[in-house]
Design a protein around this nucleic acid. Sequence first.
DNA 1: CTTTGTGCAAATTCTTTGCACCAAA
DNA 2: TTTGGTGCAAAGAATTTGCACAAAG
Lengths: 139, 139
Amino acid sequence: MIARSELKKELINAGIRPSVQRLAIYEYVKSHHTHPTADVVYDALRDVLGSLSLTTVYNTLKLFVDAGLVQLLTIDDTFRCFDGDTTSHAHFRCDSCGRIVDLKIKSDFLAMVDGLGGFEIKEAQLYLKGICPICKRKN
Amino acid sequence: MIARSELKKELINAGIRPSVQRLAIYEYVKSHHTHPTADVVYDALRDVLGSLSLTTVYNTLKLFVDAGLVQLLTIDDTFRCFDGDTTSHAHFRCDSCGRIVDLKIKSDFLAMVDGLGGFEIKEAQLYLKGICPICKRKN
DNA sequence: CTTTGTGCAAATTCTTTGCACCAAA
DNA sequence: TTTGGTGCAAAGAATTTGCACAAAG
């Protein structure tokens, strides 16, 4: 859990003015590791904040992604979700419950890829899909 | 390059009736390693085939993906593209030219992921993004 | 004949944009 | 007072669906 004042500084350092809406959205994605869609963030904050529109959520999340503060995940092909954790890690999506789980990966995992000479890698996403331990136990 | 008759057998084995359209679409994704979108496949085949609709291309590619004959890639967040190569490999997308390149990965690369005990992995996608060697040389 | 595939047009869904109003520096 | 943010409504883009006709077993 990061302090609100700390998050505010991060936005300012990134050249983003910390409006009430932006700070609330930023706090949400930084403190929830549920990989929410824009719509989920909207539903969660619309009542907390006096005023919020889905447009603002979309605009703001895009702003954060472009600034490198938030990661955009395309593990599901039907909707985009967001991850406030920008450190290197893998994602697992359960085919049964739909949950997206964070998984640690070794920092040098790119060594497993051949022929990367000459490529400049800026971003890496490792997506795994299958059945999570909880759903597996149920069946 | 695989023979048409061989591809036909693959469709039949998967329980898919090899119509003229389906076979042409299947042949296209199996012989082009350009990771086309449905629209690209449509544009490439509409003149070759007497008749083809974008709807059929969408339906057919979905059919192939569900049957496990073709892979769906979500490396780009604005459109889906398809890969006739279903063997394990990574994908690199160049931010500059948009090209998607296949890269070999070591078969045991999942050993780089921690805490997979209890998970049943059915699918893995490794997406890399950055600048490809060709675009890098140009700048 | 009878089941299945094709393709047009319309619908759907997610996301972005234009623009007027509002808020903060 | 001037720059930038918010949010409504409308537009846009990718994909899916309903349905009538065509084709293949």
